[in-house]
Simulated assay, not measured.
Amino acid sequence: MWQWIAIYAALGAAGTWLARVYALHSRLIDEPGERRSHSVATPRGGGIAIVAAVLIAAAALGIRFPSHAPLALAFAIGLLAIAGIGWVDDHRPLSPWLRLGVHAFAAAVLAFAVWHVLGNVWLALAAFALAVGLTNVWNFMDGINGMAASQAALVALALVWLGGPVWSWLALALLAACVGFLPFNFPRARIFMGDVGSGAIGYAVAALCVLAASGLGLRSGLLLLPLAAFMVDSGLTLLRRVRRGERWWTPHTQHAYQVWARRIGHTRVTLAYAVFTLLSLVCVRYVTEVRTGFILCMGAAWYMSGAFFWWLIQKTGRETGDPIS
């Protein structure tokens, strides 16, 4: 196991370093602006290293476990599609509807494979919805140093426990690759993940959740707990923007983590979100054998607590005169 971790952490670190060299050479730079949360021009596209590491891991698992090769192949096709459209978008902005179309294609490939291999139409529908949803959630939430990679690593840790004898190895590769990327992005960002990484990581998390759910049955609700921080912040912020009649698909800095980061800085916010997710991992670790009803009640309470913190952060932002929140 430790050799596997070391390999993919090294791939994540080396790939990120190479991506930074390429970004600087190609002038692939994120400039500060009113719709961004950083104040220093920073290269982007480092997430391609995580994508490459996870693709290698998926290929290795497909070879090692031939019966799982069709699912591994579908996963890889979807990951490549989302990373590819993100890579293009990092170089020249594309229509959000074109990106969404590619996300839907990748989700459909995953859903078809789940239906064809596992024979579960409901799980296939969940795969499609979760893949489209988390691809965009991770893209929305990749706005401050370390946030997207640290949350992906923590969710992957939960999936190592819950993913079963095969897919837990893919979750471990994702965890290790994110750990390899993080020193370049946190606490000081020498490179950003970019759309190539954020969307693809969201897709990978969604696919791993669905594959873990295939073996968890009624306990699948546990998988929603580690996702709470991102699901609550992105979901409530999106709903508020829709209610206000805003162009919800355009870039903005209205998420709770962005409002909070303007007050206390990137590092503290990223760590606070990490603590919230770590607490959910403790719950996941110790309640795997309890009844389904208790899991659902605990999940509802956890999401309600997240919604309360979202409201509190947004309210505090308004009271302190935040011009955007």
Rank of each mutant, 00 (worst) to 15 (best):
A126H: 05
A127L: 14
A127C: 01
F128T: 06
A129V: 14
L130P: 05
A131R: 04
V132S: 00
V132E: 02
G133E: 04
G133T: 10
G133H: 01
L134D: 15
T135Q: 01
N136L: 06
W138R: 04
N139I: 09
N139V: 01
F140Y: 13
F140P: 10
I144Y: 07
G146H: 04
G146E: 08
S150V: 15
V155G: 09
A158E: 09
A158P: 04
V160L: 15
V160N: 13
W161V: 09
L162M: 15
L162E: 12
G163T: 08
P165A: 07
W169Q: 06
L170R: 02
A171Q: 14
L172G: 15
L174P: 11
L174A: 06
L175N: 05
L175Q: 04
A176F: 03
A177N: 07
C178P: 10
C178W: 05
C178M: 13
V179M: 13
V179Y: 00
V179F: 10
G180F: 14
G180W: 15
G180I: 04
F181D: 02
L182F: 09
F184K: 02
N185V: 02
R188H: 11
R188Q: 09
A189F: 09
R190T: 15
F192I: 01
M193P: 08
M193I: 02
D195K: 14
D195G: 15
V196Q: 00
G197F: 05
G197Q: 08
G199C: 04
A200E: 11
I201L: 06
G202I: 13
A204Y: 01
V205S: 08
A206E: 05
A206I: 08
A207W: 01
L208Y: 06
C209T: 07
V210H: 04
L216T: 01
L216C: 02
G217E: 03
G217H: 08
L218Y: 13
R219L: 12
G221A: 02
G221I: 06
L222P: 12
L222K: 01
L222S: 09
P226I: 01
A228I: 05
A229F: 13
F230H: 09
D233M: 08
D233R: 15
G235V: 11
L238S: 11
L238I: 12
L239W: 03
L239Q: 12
R240G: 02
